[in-house]
Design a protein around this nucleic acid. Structure first.
Lengths: 198, 198
DNA sequence: CGAGACATGTGAACACTGTCAACATTCGTG
DNA sequence: CACGAATGTTGACAGTGTTCACATGTCTCG
């Protein structure tokens, strides 16, 4: 039960966890290496053994945020009951994914923001199980079940993605025309997307 | 021809112009009060006579960026020739506005980013001739000319806005599935929006 | 087992930032 | 002209990212 072992043992993980927590409660802009180091009980320079710069830490957290989003989408998709016609089900799944996307943004705006924060750093382990893939799969599935005509296959992903991502962004931005209520708009946009890719 | 008059005369304007320039060439994250003060030839604390905090400066520049975007939209709209059927023209105008929105984002990504950067500060002079209004007007116009059914009037703005804003965001984000080409996607999404609000 | 190579953490320093308070200068207006 | 309000300056403080030389632990190989 060593009070303070010289080596932390899992600093990188501890740092990124603490960072993600800061993002959750405050926002990615408030990330501070020194703060995190304090939080974890380590000297400021120790962080540089695991992240070459603050930007790398930010990039890593951003990636974590994207994974979190992707997880939410998968959860929503897999939550729709496996009953009824396949065609109908593929449509419902797609819709729930879209709803989950926007809902995630509204419920965790700081995390959502972090997920798409512009960062100049390119990470190596970049196997994003990205939200993009979840969406594309769902659309492909709809094409297979005949819910979406094959002609739309090429353009449907970017159309759906744009609509959902744009709405999420608009609802979480502070800048907007006052009095937009989320829940109403979500269905409006999801309906619009359905028409657009039918 | 006083070398350095004690009073600058138009510091606020000089500061926000310099700031906008930094945003253009670098990004809103790189804004530094001291830097701007240097640029303008004034001491750091002088800035506090015009902006209570850095965040206020950021908010102001963000507003300028939004005005710039709105200007681009108006320009695109007014550039469509006043010939042919009104109905057709209203559609073309709408489309050009959408195209201009995305084009602006692609050509001036840092400015676009600044326009929607999250900021906790609420400005007073907030008479945004915002891009939102330009879009809503265009849609209303389409309803009048019969290009868009009245049923869609309520939801069309958020649908169109989401699609266009989402695409712009996606095209300018660094995080995306590799190899998205802008010009192709723009038309795809604009077509999708047309179907969605028809 | 022991010794050196390597990974990891520390301490002190540098340049930089936003912000503030006390002071200086100028502008406007009575 | 004089005096208050507006604007700009100096100097300081706390906090930041980053680096470098050094300390400490861990691991591997003879």
């Amino acid at each position: 039960m060593a009070e303070k072992p010289y080596h932390h043992g899992a600093l990188e993980l501890a740092l990124s966890s603490a960072a993600l927590e800061v993002v959750r409660t405050s926002g990615i802009a408030d990330l501070s290496l020194r703060d995190l180091a304090r939080e974890v009980g380590v000297s400021p320079s120790a962080t540089y053994r695991h992240f070459p710069s603050r930007d790398h830490l930010v990039a890593r957290v951003s990636q974590l945020a994207r994974e979190s989003l992707a997880g939410a989408l998968l959860g929503a998709r897999d939550a729709v009951p496996a009953t009824g016609a396949l065609k109908r089900r593929s449509v419902v799944q797609f819709r729930e994914i879209g709803r989950a996307y926007v809902t995630f943004a509204v419920e965790h705006p700081t995390v959502f923001d972090a997920a798409f924060t512009p960062c100049h750093i390119r990470l190596e382990r970049d196997d994003d199980p990205s939200a993009w893939l979840v969406l594309v799969e769902a659309i492909d599935h709809m094409v297979v079940t005949g819910a979406v005509p094959a002609v739309r296959r090429k353009d449907a992903p970017i159309i759906a993605w744009s609509g959902v991502h744009g709405l999420a962004q608009i609802l979480t931005a502070s800048v907007w025309p006052s009095g937009i209520d989320a829940t109403g708009e979500i269905d409006a946009v999801l309906d619009g997307i359905s028409r657009a890719i039918s």
